[in-house]
Design a protein around this nucleic acid. Sequence first.
DNA 1: ATGTCTGCAAAAAATTTGCAGTCCC
DNA 2: GGGACTGCAAATTTTTTGCAGACAT
Lengths: 153, 153
Amino acid sequence: MQSTDAKTGKQPAKIAGGFNCINDFLSEHGIKPTRQRVAIATHIFETEQHLSADTILERVNDDATTTNVSKATVYNTLKLFVREGILKEVALDPQRILFDTNTHHHHHVLNLDNGDIRDIQPVSINLSEIEGLQQHHNISDVDLIIKVRDNKD
Amino acid sequence: MQSTDAKTGKQPAKIAGGFNCINDFLSEHGIKPTRQRVAIATHIFETEQHLSADTILERVNDDATTTNVSKATVYNTLKLFVREGILKEVALDPQRILFDTNTHHHHHVLNLDNGDIRDIQPVSINLSEIEGLQQHHNISDVDLIIKVRDNKD
DNA sequence: ATGTCTGCAAAAAATTTGCAGTCCC
DNA sequence: GGGACTGCAAATTTTTTGCAGACAT
């Protein structure tokens, strides 16, 4: 697709490690691939799937091969990514707001004993059990979080 | 039940509007009914069911008949109430962490167009659809939020 | 040069901590 | 008086805003 090339006719700056597919990925989603955004995206999309804003800041700035960024930029960039649909913000718990690289419709299993998060396929929920719903409303999203503890047996 | 009376033999301070059932309610749950806590509890349990920390602060301090409290006290008291099980903290959305006076197991319907929240009965979810769950884990909670928009037709 | 956009310092908002003052006994 | 607990000022953490500089025409 190479949208940046097509428009400007010049190659974007090379990214650490030789990845410029991240650039293309951002461009394809209408996000100008600046150094800061590429640094953040690289860390988000190449490590774990569920990360908090300050874990991301930490990782980006600990990595000497990518630009350092300010906290404000991390927040603003993450919000931008959510707005452009390449990231999803998930409130797993009042204490744990995370960003999820899986933007498809899915649910989560949260292990309360060790904090692990696992994605699960959409579950069939019988919406007709819920009174007074289908007449007036369009369902726009269904958030489901199953909280489990390790079996002590 | 009047547990405060039974223990100390003296009547707790009269609450605005003549309610001292709030005192008893707190006492029954092992929470010493101080002026600040009673003020906060009065507002939480007598108005809407879903409130944010700063709405609660605002309401308590706007009401001339109840003690004024600091922001810190509102936070600490709400956390205490959650710990003692008379209140539930709900992450409806990354941007909306609310306190819910309904501590029974239930779910929520959130109207994205007007912000309204409605409680719904627990829905039957077929957990056997979820691979690798029942063997290793005890389900400790199931959070379900159905986000709807008003039908435009 | 000029209008648009970016990144971040500083501001604001949200939450937690630490400790002075109270309340029992 | 002394141990335990309460409420809040201050500290910390999280998030947002506003604007100086960069960038593309």
